[in-house]
Amino acid sequence: MTAATASAKNALLTWPRPASPEPAGQPLLEFRQVSKIYGTGTAAMRALDGVDLRISPGEFVAVMGPSGSGKSTAMNILGCLDTPSAGSYLFRGVAVETLSHDQRARLRRHYLGFVFQGFNLLNRTSALENVELPLIYRRAPRAERHARARAALAQVGLTGWEGHTPGELSGGQQQRVAIARAIVTEPSLLLADEPTGNLDTARSHEVMELLVGLNRDQGITVLMVTHEAEMAAYAHRIIHFRDGRVADDGRAGGPV
């Protein structure tokens, strides 16, 4: 390991995260021939097949592609929740697969916000407590935790629903709680797997406006999986997956 990457790694694991913008020209995220293989032998399934990808700080990227094309698999690896079977994933120039279990947890804690396709909220726990949770692990004091969680819920239009548990919320409301939980920490990278999958068009547009605002005003890099061209149109760049490969990667036109 070179001195440069060692210091990059150290910078990655300390809190607060370096305030300086990313060095110009260096990608925030980079996939180098990343593959993910499920199963073995004849049953082996290549969910990702030698993907190369670079995403710069401040980008707003939409990921599209047919069901089963590997979008969620790629997002999980980008979110440091899963490890590639082959290839390398660099986050701010540091190869994530060389990090320990705890170092990856710190990376997630300091940099990432993740919205799961299946929400993954804690059952029987109020919306407010769900949104507070990442702040508890960040040691935010109680009053600050409450204020920020309330603000995040307000941003997704859930003022008044703080005390409801996931079981008492609709799919769309749960999805918005999941979004609030991901943005409450003001991450530098927001990964959202179909954040509008359960929302009506009006709500979807509101959420997209929120993401655009976070991207534009706070410089948060956003990666979002979507099936809807209308939502993808909010992004600066659209990446198409097909059969575990990047089929198309290009500029989009901006909001319709």
Partner: peptide, 16 residues
Amino acid sequence: TREIGIRLAIGALERE
């Protein structure tokens, strides 16, 4: 286990 997964995903350390 799912709960543990959620906690880890949002930044909890193993020892926490």
